[in-house]
Design a protein around this nucleic acid. Structure first.
Lengths: 148, 148
DNA sequence: TGCATACATTTGTATATACAATTGTTGTAA
DNA sequence: TTACAACAATTGTATATACAAATGTATGCA
């Protein structure tokens, strides 16, 4: 991790920036590894997250606002994200009968079994990412991140 | 920060994922605040980083590979990033006379003064982001992030 | 009933990014 | 010298994302 190198390029960068830059670098690394892990399944990280949320619904359909609330994405993208999952046959979408403004999104059996494969790949990637951490480290890290 | 809410949506998400998701959420928050801070100056976070690197060169021109090495971006984007900074008059680019495959990129006086305004805006955003952190917290956080 | 307003989602458009292929330049070995 | 590989940057294309505007639906109220 080359934080120091970046900081040192410009003496006028304040020390507090180090943390900010460091987080950004770590996040980039995480993103790259997760994306690579999901590549064989042909889904993006965001698509994977949608599938996980849907599984957590346990059959109860989710509408777009719910998905959006639990994700890190903007509303306009959620529509297109779901579009792509439909194309892959991993979810289906229908107009909510009780309120036709809403849509109901469900994970398909096909989606569930694909998700299981993704879980395995993600788990391996995570173990690799976190190999230097003890349980206490992780707890401490979470506590610190909560301060943001 | 709504990490728990996300985790709880799907019981099958392993505990270690909490940290990973948490970092991603924090990074998103940082990104949003920094982007908002830079908006009045009309530059993206990436463009700001290029300008900082160029300032650190102290007049010595940087070529694209150098910029790229110190950034979190892919090569193909660096070209277009610099294109935009040229349009704004913040940097200039010329073919390197000693090796015509390379280019030399410099920050302009115009760019330097714009960068000073950006520094101020970023500093304010950072202080807001880090208001709950002590110096020890920041040191601990950096140490933990180094384990990635 | 009719109309304004709020809600849920979608679409349009500009910009950003990733990845692969391409261009132009240099170094080097037959 | 020429042919070929390596290098540095750029371009093409597909996909992703942000933001604003538009669509269709429901609700409240005169």
């Amino acid at each position: 991790m080359n934080v120091e190198k970046i900081i040192k390029t410009d003496k006028q960068i304040p020390i507090t920036s180090r943390t900010i830059i460091h987080i950004s670098l770590v996040e980039t690394k995480i993103n790259e590894m997760m994306t690579a892990a999901l590549k064989p399944q042909g889904v993006s990280l965001q698509q994977f997250n949608v599938l996980r949320i849907l599984r957590g619904q346990k059959g109860k359909p989710a509408n777009l606002s719910t998905l959006n609330e639990r994700m890190v994405t903007k509303m306009s993208n959620t529509t297109r994200l779901v579009d792509k999952l439909i194309l892959k046959g991993y979810v289906d979408r229908m107009v909510c009968p009780s309120n036709r403004r809403k849509v109901e999104i469900n994970i398909t059996p096909n989606g569930e079994s694909a998700l299981q494969k993704m879980d395995k790949a993600i788990k391996i990637a995570e173990e690799k990412l976190l190999e230097n951490f003890t349980g206490d480290d992780l707890a401490a890290l979470n506590n610190l991140l909560d301060k943001f």
